[in-house]
């Protein structure tokens, strides 16, 4: 077994699952997710990985910057979110419902959310990865969660800013 192969295997063992999860959530295709993870890890084998203990943000950044560049569409003002679809076809079970809602979230909003929740990136880092401003990322995150809250039919339960609000 060559040195690069053993390094690939080591990276795959440690970071293959979270990377695959991220790719699957973003592209929604298992074959493509596997291929992108393979390419990302192969690329990473030739690089010095900073913070080996928590290489996930680095690897995800590598994936969406070099392996599957998707940053161009994030420049400029975020597009308005479409109207929430009817929620009558929600499957049973809260987790399944939430997964469906996330899948329905437009990619422009889903990617910053995935970077924050799955990769644990802070807003400045997300902005750097997507080559956009921090304000734009914050807006996307804000709108994405608002959308999720509405889709989760929590809108009825959402407290409004009442008299006690400031």
């Amino acid at each position: 077994m060559t040195r690069s192969t053993s390094r690939f295997d080591s990276l795959a063992q440690q970071w293959g699952a979270p990377l695959y999860r991220f790719a699957l959530w973003l592209w929604g295709n298992t074959g493509k997710a596997e291929r992108l993870v393979s390419l990302t890890l192969r690329r990473a084998c030739r690089l010095e990985i900073p913070h080996e203990g928590n290489a996930l943000p680095f690897l995800i950044e590598l994936m969406i910057r070099e392996v599957a560049p998707i940053t161009l569409r994030y420049r400029g003002r975020p597009a308005a979110l479409p109207a929430p679809p009817l929620s009558t076809d929600f499957p049973e079970g809260e987790m399944e419902r939430l997964r469906l809602v996330v899948r329905r979230l437009p990619e422009e909003y889903r990617l910053p959310l995935l970077l924050q929740v799955l990769a644990g990136m802070e807003i400045p880092r997300i902005a750097a990865v997507l080559e956009t401003s921090e304000a734009s990322v914050a807006t996307r995150l804000c709108r994405a969660r608002q959308w999720l809250l509405k889709q989760e039919t929590r809108v009825d339960r959402l407290p409004t800013a009442g008299r006690g609000g400031r």
Binding site: F8, D9, G16, E34, V37, S38
Partner: peptide
């Protein structure tokens, strides 16, 4: 089997 399916 993800680790095995990842292609070096």
């Amino acid at each position: 089997s993800l680790s095995e399916r990842l292609d070096h």
